[in-house]
């Protein structure tokens, strides 16, 4: 009976959507960074698989179907960049320099730390794109030969830490410009950090949102030249 249900790709697809729906409901109630809908959904799916002894391969039948839309979703990011064009125009040069410097510094720091710690090449490549927005990070990880799920893990750690630490880092590093604050949050901690940037001010949030798209694209270009 269980196999009849779990062997269909609809099982993994449905479970993923249901888990995200529950995740959204829970995060609306709890309103804490750590309880973001994505994280809740992943934990829920893992819990269902463990409790009902469902092999990962059964889930992956539907999971792979959903994962197939990674490229289309990344393509559509163009629309969200295009919609922000007016804000981009007003501060184009500072945003561009900030995201170029930040993206390059991020990749080089990760590579140097990876070399210093002597971790495997596979893990290093998984971590390289971890500062950028998920669709682009996964795409870069794939092209380098990294492991998607490790990229996502590091990316969530970075995002959640960035979200929590952002106000403190602004004080610690004596950042006075609101544009610099927004660009730094978006470049260093992508969309999870951006939700804190929005709380700090609409202008800071807008800068953070643009910076995360810019840094994603710049990181993709830099990585393809660098490696």
């Amino acid at each position: 009976m269980k196999e009849v249900i779990t062997s269909s790709p609809l099982f993994g697809t449905g479970l993923t959507i249901l888990a995200y729906w529950i995740g959204m409901k829970v995060s609306q109630k709890l309103k804490k960074t750590i309880f973001n809908p994505y994280l809740i959904a992943v934990v829920l799916v893992l819990a269902v698989l463990a409790v009902f002894h469902i092999p990962y391969s059964s889930y992956a039948e539907g999971g792979d179907f959903i994962g197939m839309f990674l490229t289309p979703v990344t393509t559509i990011l163009a629309l969200s960049i295009y919609r922000q064009r007016e804000t981009v125009k007003s501060h184009f040069i500072p945003i561009l320099t900030g995201t170029i410097v930040g993206s390059i510094v991020s990749v080089i720091t990760i590579v140097l730390l990876a070399e210093a710690m002597g971790i495997t090449e596979e893990l290093k490549y998984s971590l390289v794109p971890k500062s950028v927005t998920t669709p682009i990070a996964v795409a870069i990880s794939d092209s380098l030969g990294g492991i998607r799920s490790l990229t996502v893990t590091a990316l969530i750690i970075t995002g959640v830490m960035g979200n929590i630490l952002a106000p403190l880092l602004v004080k610690l590093f004596r950042v006075r410009s609101r544009i610099a604050t927004g660009v730094a949050i978006g470049t260093a901690s992508h969309v999870i950090g951006t939700s804190k940037a929005l709380e700090m001010g609409e202008d800071i949030g807008a800068m953070s949102g643009i910076a995360l798209s810019f840094s994603g694209i710049i990181t993709a270009i830099f990585v393809s030249i660098f490696f």
């Binding site: 959904a41 990962y56 839309f69 998607r148």
Partner: peptide, 13 residues
């Protein structure tokens, strides 16, 4: 968008 990355996250298993 986040839905499309759930399988990548679950793959950690």
């Amino acid at each position: 968008m986040a839905i499309f990355f759930i399988p990548s996250g679950v793959e950690i298993i």
